[in-house]
């Protein structure tokens, strides 16, 4: 009799605990989303140089601009500069195991 009477009360306590857990989870998720916005950019910038009929690619260096002559090869000229952003899992790996993305807390974009 006593056990039958106590069941709904324990269920209520459990529900309260679950609600509290959900609130804490959502608060942490929101805080992590805001923190994510302050993270540094992850992209890599490349410079393309035309050397005769070939085009070589290297990392961008400050001072590079399209049309600039370069002595990296004979008659070399910078023909393009562009950014490449690491995608998906590659980004997750860079952030480490306990990152927001590995914990499933990262916002999907």
């Amino acid at each position: 009799m006593a056990m039958e009477g106590s069941m709904p009360a324990w269920l209520q306590s459990l529900l309260i605990l679950l609600s509290l857990g959900a609130v804490i989870y959502l608060t942490i998720k929101q805080a992590r989303d805001v923190m994510k916005l302050t993270e540094e950019t992850q992209e890599r910038i490349y410079t393309e140089i035309r050397c005769g009929s070939d085009v070589i690619k290297r990392d961008f260096r400050e001072g590079d601009y399209v049309g600039a002559a370069t002595d990296e090869c004979e008659g070399g000229r910078i023909v393009g500069i562009y950014a490449v952003t690491p995608q998906g899992e590659e980004r997750a790996k860079k952030r480490g195991f306990f990152s927001s993305s590995s914990l499933g807390l990262a916002r999907r974009t």
């Binding site: 009799m1 056990m3 009477g5 709904p8 009360a9 324990w10 209520q12």
Partner: peptide, 20 residues
């Protein structure tokens, strides 16, 4: 009635009353 059952019932009643 067993003392443990009495205590359980009393605690359950209190939780129920506070919840309400």
């Amino acid at each position: 009635m067993q003392p443990a059952a009495l205590m359980g019932s009393s605690l359950a009643d209190w939780i129920s009353a506070i919840s309400q």
